[in-house]
Amino acid sequence: MSASASTALSIRDLTIEIGRPLVHGVSLDLHAGRVQGLAGESGSGKTLTSLAVLGLLPRAARTSGSIRLGEDELLGMPRRALNRVRGKRIAMVFQDPSASLHPQLTVGTQLTDHMRVHLGLKGKAAEQRAVELLETVQVPRAADSLGRYPHQFSGGQRQRIAIACALACDPEVLLADEPTTALDVTVQAGILQLLRDLAIERELAVLLVTHDLGVMSAIADDVAIMKDGRIVERADRATLFADPQHEYTQTLLAALPGSKIDGAGFGEDTDE
């Protein structure tokens, strides 16, 4: 399969200014069925890049370049048109599920709202789909979970529910911004394995934004390293971890415990 045939999202020469230049000419392609990692320390511009895709930057932000979803240009797209893309063709999973899930709405309501708006699904059809989504992300007792509230679930289960909400309308692209940072280590592996499986099974293009190269080694097919608003190195995972070329990448890898990445250790999410 050629790279061009599988390209789901293409970012070209993206620049972002918020009072001062913060992202400088970033170019990145996301491919169906693959996880693209975007790594760097805090302030490197990686989260800004992901937020720009969905038009979620602050009002004061000034952008240039191109972000294309298929034939559609997202950068500068009118807000009404962009709202039809958000949640339906591109979805996002944020760092803290407690913040992204509404505390006063049931899980079922939050899942079916997406379907009602974007798919026109209501009633039993929406409820059945909600159950199937919760089963897909491995939330126990899926049918019973629809009537419960986010605070009644563990942190790992809340993140799985947030992923289910993101998948509700079968998006082409999933943006995951530090999706395991708020979780303990034993739960992280299960969430990462889930994202990896979803990319493969649903031909989903995933952008994984993280500061943690250990996370990247476990899930990403391709990795781009950002520093000071620029991509300084990119390669497939095996090449980058075996033979990093840029001094900054070498420094990040050297800081990892044991300075050795093997990508092993996936386990079950035991956070019940």
Rank of each mutant, 00 (worst) to 15 (best):
S4P: 02
A5P: 01
L9P: 00
S10E: 14
S10C: 09
S10K: 10
I11P: 00
I11S: 00
E17K: 11
I18F: 08
R20T: 15
P21V: 09
V23S: 05
L28I: 12
D29K: 01
G37Q: 01
G43D: 06
G43L: 06
S44Y: 12
S50C: 12
L51D: 07
R59A: 15
R59N: 14
G65P: 04
E71I: 09
L75W: 08
P78T: 12
R80A: 15
L82C: 13
V85A: 04
R86Y: 14
G87H: 01
R89S: 06
A91H: 03
M92Y: 03
L101T: 05
H102D: 15
P103K: 13
T109W: 11
T112N: 05
G120A: 13
K124Y: 13
E127M: 14
Q128S: 11
L133F: 15
L134R: 01
Q138W: 14
V139T: 03
L146C: 06
F153R: 00
F153Y: 11
F153S: 00
G155Q: 06
A164P: 01
A168H: 03
P171Y: 09
A176K: 00
E178Y: 09
T181Q: 08
L183V: 10
V185K: 02
V187W: 04
Q188I: 12
D197F: 01
D197V: 09
A199R: 02
E201R: 13
E203W: 04
L207E: 02
H211G: 05
M216S: 07
D222K: 02
D228E: 14
R234P: 00
R234C: 03
A238F: 10
L240I: 14
A254T: 09
F266E: 01
